[in-house]
Amino acid sequence: MKDARTAGDAAPLELRIDAKSYVSADGKRVEVVRGLELRLEAGSFGALIGPSGCGKTTILRIAAGLDADFRGQILTPGAGRLGMVFQEPRLLPWRTVEDNVRLALPVDRSGVDLADLFDTLGLGSHLAQYPGELSLGLARRAAIARAFAIQPDFLLLDEPFVSLDEAVAARLRDELMALTTRTKVTTLLVTHHLEEAVQLADRLFFLSDRPTHVIFEKALSLPRGTRSKEDIASISEEMRSLVAQAVTGAGPR
């Protein structure tokens, strides 16, 4: 009973995974997700926050249509054009930065002007370089440029700032904030970094350990982009205590 269909324009992103498991190397069936449900309004930015190894990447792969081996249903917004930033940049090492971005474009748009996008992401002077010549931060920028270049209807981000030093990550978050605000693309970010989620998202989904489900979700009232450092710190504190309550309230499993 799996189904991935595409809804009309401005439809929300809906994800329901009743069960997802895999058979491990020693032949045991491991349950990764059970009874996970989430709904994200069109044009909004959601963040999945959970401990590492809880199956966040599995959920994103299902949402991206890369993994059809699950019970449940996904409903994607718009014409279903998907942009994705993977945890590793996944650029083609044998193509330059610019070629990597342009290759993702549909054939009829392959010559489109991307100067603005490259400028926003500070890639202007690196377009002719090969990925092997880039720092991780620049490679991530190229991966982000690729995801936005196709003008996606929805965007999946898998820990796009992990293992960057904090200054670079902070700049990239600001750039991402600018791009998502400008394009109003429905976005789902996976992260284990609470402050990052609080800075970027409209709605937070907190995930449990395996088998993963949503412990609770929270819409942030302060509009994104207007939250100061202090706001982010205090909201994060509040969230931490809410998560602690939700976990103890649920009792031992």
Binding site: R61, A64, G65, L66, R81, L82, G83, M84, F86, E88, R90, L92, W94, R95, L103, A104, P106, V107, R146, I150
Partner: peptide
């Protein structure tokens, strides 16, 4: 396989896959 996934997400055509992903 990671690059195959990327190509799938970005809807690379068969020609693009062979020319830019498989051949290199």
């Amino acid at each position: 396989p990671d690059i195959d996934d990327m190509a799938k997400v970005f809807q690379f055509t068969a020609f693009k896959r062979i020319r830019h992903i498989v051949m290199p």
